[in-house]
Design a protein around this nucleic acid. Sequence first.
DNA 1: AATGTCACTCTACATCCAAGAGTGCTGATT
DNA 2: AATCAGCACTCTTGGATGTAGAGTGACATT
Lengths: 344, 344
Amino acid sequence: MTKLNERRKAILRAIIQSHIDLNIPIGSILITQRFSIGLSPATIRNTMAKLEELGYIIQPHTSAGRVPTEKGYRFYVDTLMEEETFSINSALSDELSGRLGIIRKDCNSLIKEAARTLSLFSRYLAIATPPRMEDIVLKRIKFIKYEKKKMLAILISEEGLVKNKIIELDHIHSQKQLDRAANYLNNRFSGLVIKKVKEKIAYQLYKEKTMFDQLIDSLLYLCKDIVPLENNDFSLDGLSGTSNLPDFATLKQIKAILRAIEDKNFMLKLLHRVSESRGTQVFVGMESILPAMKELSMVVSTFNNKKLASGAVGIIGPTRMNYKKMIPIVDHTAKALTQILSET
Amino acid sequence: MTKLNERRKAILRAIIQSHIDLNIPIGSILITQRFSIGLSPATIRNTMAKLEELGYIIQPHTSAGRVPTEKGYRFYVDTLMEEETFSINSALSDELSGRLGIIRKDCNSLIKEAARTLSLFSRYLAIATPPRMEDIVLKRIKFIKYEKKKMLAILISEEGLVKNKIIELDHIHSQKQLDRAANYLNNRFSGLVIKKVKEKIAYQLYKEKTMFDQLIDSLLYLCKDIVPLENNDFSLDGLSGTSNLPDFATLKQIKAILRAIEDKNFMLKLLHRVSESRGTQVFVGMESILPAMKELSMVVSTFNNKKLASGAVGIIGPTRMNYKKMIPIVDHTAKALTQILSET
DNA sequence: AATGTCACTCTACATCCAAGAGTGCTGATT
DNA sequence: AATCAGCACTCTTGGATGTAGAGTGACATT
């Protein structure tokens, strides 16, 4: 890690903040005007030359001002910003919590509302995933006969997630039989994390091959079909609001985002990776993740319920977004979600 | 309706087809080169002047070629194209049906797949709505106790639609009681269209105010809450594929589409309006519907099950899209959906 | 009525120029 | 040794200018 002395830090901070505000290359004179650093433009130029050499800023062309590089933003978010204390406006905080609190519906609606709120407040694209299926706690299973050889399997989780899926059976079962199978499953697996449920089922199938036929059958089916029951969805909001922002509206970027979003698997993997660690994370310049997402950044945080299942909420915006504002907003939203989910 | 003689029709057709192919203003010489009409450019110019006077084509500026107006496209779709017979390529037809047929899952997945397929084949934005909630046939209702004063209501329709919703109760009910209520509802309302169910419930509530308490309670809740259970979703596909198309990618248009889509209510209303009539419809130049959607057209068709519930599938593209190709594709997709839904 | 011709109009594109912004370097100052 | 003022230089931006090409409308001709 290259160490920067105080002056260089101050000037880098000034450049980045100015660039966030104005979205133009920042020259030495502009900095002396906007900040009272007590240095002449010439001195600042010297420092800027050094910062460029170190890779924190770059000149789009000779005789233009400097623009922060990804490395510059990274350093800003990690180091420069950390040194300041930024707290969320308390009125804003109340409003955020309020919007989520009113609803108090099931988990899915809550997550949708979170995305909507986040996009509203950030004016960027907001994303939110429910907890990963593997990590949720099974509350109740229910089978409902649907047609001769089809049933509807319903999974309810402690967190308030509801998933249903039509499963084809290869024998005809009566509703009674289905009920019995569901009861059996409920008794044995209720209160466990889905991942554990899967393991147990696999073990049981392996060990006691024949108990009573239909039951094992149902188990087998459930076991097989619980995997594609994986959460393959996330909420998304603010697409149109986003494109209002003039500097976020370059066609290239919108296309990049759309493409990434369309590939839901990709986004899900990314978000789940995030939710493995806690707290608010900032991805600066996402091209290391997806080349098309150059010049985009993501601020994302995790929420959780009883320290078990965790989902993610966040925003995607231009690399030169106002992290000082956005990080607290995302952070607070995630915390509010965690609180609401814990209350239930 | 202004009548056009054969020559004018032929030239208008030539202009529109050329414009669809090339996306540039069409001049008189170009037409003589592309078509063997047997007329000189000068004659064509005279006719073009007349067509412009009548409002079918327009000059972007003096000494540019002509571009079809909305009226021109409308006339093309309604009259000129009708005169030709266009049938879908049978290989394409098989592939369309095939992609949908393989799945044969529940209605929701089917609709998603339809949107995906349509966007794939058209390279435009595809939309699809499930049948309107009001029109589906109730197959089974199930209540599952969720928490002290909450239950999960599950609605299964004949069409294979499954909707669930967490409903708050103001008394504590046992699962037994919930089952009894559900049974009561199933016995009385199964096989009816939701619209009818609502009516009947309203009537019953009005007439026999007190039967046995909890039952009426549950009914009341269902009745109240079945309304927001309205289908508020539609599938959408091809956003990123769409933006591949260079001439469809103007930022303005993408923004317009995004905005319209984000306002789900608006799109739903539009699609439901469509599904009131049968067959494939073409909306040319949608600015009469939404000003921002200028220069966009929609080709949309309805599918249905047993002549009862009907949903809509379609594509949104630039006004100068290739209607000759697109209409059969949409048409066929809708028909394939209808067939698959009827088989079940 | 259909066609050939020609002057006219307008766009698109390249070129040029001037203004402005910003830099790096040098030499003087503290 | 650090700071700073001054200056020559570079590069972008925007407006102005000119030209080639496409297309038209009008008019005379067949």
